[in-house]
Nucleic acid binder design. Structure first.
Lengths: 121, 121
DNA sequence: GTATTATACATAGCAGTGTTAGGTAGGTCA
DNA sequence: TGACCTACCTAACACTGCTATGTATAATAC
């Protein structure tokens, strides 16, 4: 069911940056957006997201600003920086490289399987 | 240039298992196969691969056997187990879930960009 | 009025894992 | 003799997600 830890680690930065590239957002809303984008198949915990946001801020990929919403509740809004957009593009390129490699490996398997069982064995 | 650490971590298990599902292999050859499958874009170090192989063995996903080749050199061949094949299928499913989510996020961005710059601005 | 849930942020300690660097050893070729 | 490739292994380090916990306010339910 759940997505394993390494995959979460690999996807958290590009996914958060991509969500912020859509527009400024804050922690809680980002969690919901991830659930939405994944069709409910990815469920991030807030305990893992906030450290990610802090790291992105420390690296200069995002900037944070406190805001008070109508209902009096305070939110920390994050905005992607120019540097963050460059990082997003780089992350995306790397992901696609690895994805192409994995697909190649899986393809090699199915080709092999077909060769071993010719004509609907 | 290089692929970042988290992506390596996320892809190492499914990639090694997929390579072994093609047929038994050993450390050095696996490194070459990764380079080949990625078109030279992924370069694993042996220092990261051997711990991965040992972990997969500890988890019961692969079995190892020493062999002596014609030239007298010894190699440790790895074979994927039934449990390893199940893990490979699960890893593949998870990867595709995350990949679909990321592609959705990128797609949302390009749609947004087109809306902001209509008719070739 | 009070308990529960949802919103909203944050941190501490634990465990897993890639990186860097180094070590062992045999074969090939100039 | 030296350089390079093959072939395996490990240790110390740094990073980071996970789990658990804490704080606080608003909305909802009882």
């Amino acid at each position: 069911m759940g997505i394993n830890k390494d995959l979460i680690a690999a996807s958290s930065t590009p996914l958060v940056l991509a969500i912020l590239a859509e527009g400024d957002s804050y922690g809680y809303a980002i969690l919901q957006r991830v659930r939405e984008l994944s069709g409910g198949r990815m469920e991030w915990t807030d305990g893992m997201l906030y450290p990610v946001l802090h790291r992105l801020e420390r690296l200069g990929y995002v900037e944070a600003k406190w805001k008070v919403v109508e209902n009096g509740r305070r939110r920390k809004y994050y905005r992607i920086t120019r540097k963050g957009r460059a990082q997003l593009a780089e992350n995306r390129r790397q992901w696609q490289t690895v994805d192409a490699t994995l697909r190649g490996a899986w393809e090699a398997l199915s080709v092999k399987r077909q060769a071993a069982e010719p004509a609907g064995a």
